[in-house]
Simulated scan of single mutants.
Amino acid sequence: MGVRVGIVGLPNVGKSTLFNALVEGSRAEVANYPFCTIDPNIGVVEVPDERVKILAEREGAAQAVPATVEFVDIAGLVRHASRGEGLGNQFLAHIREVEALAVVLRCFEDPEVVHVEGAVDPVRDLEILEVELIAKDLETVERRLSKVEKAARSGDRAAGEEYRHLEILRRILSEVEPLRKHREKIPPETLEYAFRTLFLLTLKPVLWVANLGEGDLPEGRENPHLVRLAERARNEGVPLIPLCAELEAQLAELSPEERREMLAAYGLAEPGLWRVIREAYGLLNLITFYTVNEKEARARTLRRGATALEAAAEIHTDMARGFIAAEVINFEDYRALSGLSEARKKGLVRLEGRDYPVKDGDILYIRFKV
């Protein structure tokens, strides 16, 4: 299944540098002026996962194929983008096409890199971005309200129900609040309507990436911008990932051994980008399951709570159509064994039906007949 995450932020905060590091040498342009990215750059990134490599080695598969996330480098938003400033309408349309947002926030000082707002302040930048997304959502809701209001007042039942959903959404947005912060208070049927019909920007899950200077590594605890941002993230329950995009871009060009040495020099256990990828993957409530044969061990993506039948459809529609049963062992049980042959001998591979909820790490073999 396709997973698309948009990288957003104000101009010159490090979005394209981060994108380049993510896709290891893509051709996203990086320059020191606003709007150097106009059309979105797109890169497919592997999800770091040792399990699929172990599975391939033990089962003698020719290759290991990890799950992937598609990142979209969206041009910088500016104040009043919702009114069309700085090509704002075009950029907001690109945001509408992704499933989640990675918001890059500049936390480094550098007089050589201009800031569109004049001074570095990631909390202010975050608020500018959120206000523009809220304004666009409010415009969407109010435009739809104007279309259904007359029919709703005349007694049309469907229009009346839609009007009630829109009013709930409008009230929240009118308070300059993103809808995702109020999901618990929004009736499930209203949420379903919003997702199905309106594709609102502030309902998308988000993570924040604090772009630090190299001198702030490894954790940036002394960086006052990061301290304020971390407090905001805790209060809102948003994942916050501190990293240095410039360093990540350098790491992406190194060999594995050189990368380990540089990480150790900065006191880092792993590239910050690995956490960005994992958090983006988890942000969408996704899990990974595995299939293996002599050609490949493959990590596959599934929504949490999906069934064995849905997993079969993710592999091939014929498997779902002729589904009989799924042979299942979780990777945590598999890890202690020499391979699937030993697992079967010990009776650790079980049969599950079509309604079995697939767990993260499950290794599946689908029995089917068409």
Rank of each mutant, 00 (worst) to 15 (best):
V358I: 11
R170V: 02
L191P: 00
A67E: 07
V328S: 00
E332P: 05
P188Y: 08
E314S: 15
E258V: 07
L273P: 03
S154K: 15
E294W: 06
E192W: 10
L364G: 13
S16I: 06
D125G: 08
R171P: 01
R196G: 04
T197H: 13
R106Y: 06
G339Q: 13
N235L: 13
N223Q: 14
A320S: 14
P242G: 08
P11G: 05
I42F: 02
E127K: 15
R354M: 10
L254R: 14
L87A: 10
E117G: 04
L133Y: 02
L340C: 09
G84N: 10
R367G: 13
R183C: 01
I241D: 02
G267C: 11
Y290G: 09
F19P: 03
E132K: 03
E314C: 12
V120D: 07
A75S: 15
V292N: 02
F289M: 09
E189G: 07
K150H: 15
S26Y: 02
L217E: 06
T190M: 08
A326K: 13
I363Q: 00
E109W: 08
E142P: 00
V114R: 14
G272I: 09
T68F: 10
R260M: 11
N89Y: 06
D73T: 10
F35T: 00
S255G: 15
D73A: 10
P66Y: 12
I186H: 08
L18K: 05
K346Q: 15
A56G: 12
K15T: 01
A343D: 03
I168G: 03
S174Y: 01
E192S: 15
V8P: 02
A210V: 04
L200Y: 01
N41H: 10
C107R: 02
L229P: 12
V349M: 05
V8D: 01
A28P: 07
A194W: 03
Y163P: 05
A93T: 07
E29D: 04
V113K: 02
A102V: 06
T307Q: 12
L55H: 07
R164G: 06
L243Q: 08
Y266L: 12
V103Q: 05
R303F: 11
Q250P: 02
G88I: 01
A61F: 10
N41E: 04
A299T: 08
D216Y: 12
G6K: 13
D355F: 14
R164Y: 04
D362P: 06
T197R: 15
S338T: 14
R221M: 08
M319Y: 14
G361V: 07
V78Y: 02
D333R: 15
G76K: 10
E57H: 12
E352G: 13
S341T: 11
L364A: 07
E167C: 12
A62H: 14
N330S: 09
N89E: 09
R96A: 03
T317A: 11
G2E: 14
E253N: 09
Q250G: 13
K136M: 12
A135I: 00
G86L: 05
A81M: 05
A102P: 01
S341H: 15
I363Y: 04
V44T: 12
A233G: 01
R234P: 01
L229D: 07
R79I: 01
V69A: 00
Q250F: 04
E117I: 02
V45I: 12
P66K: 12
L247K: 07
L351Y: 10
R278M: 04
L87F: 10
F19D: 00
S82W: 00
E85R: 07
L273Y: 11
G9N: 02
P218G: 13
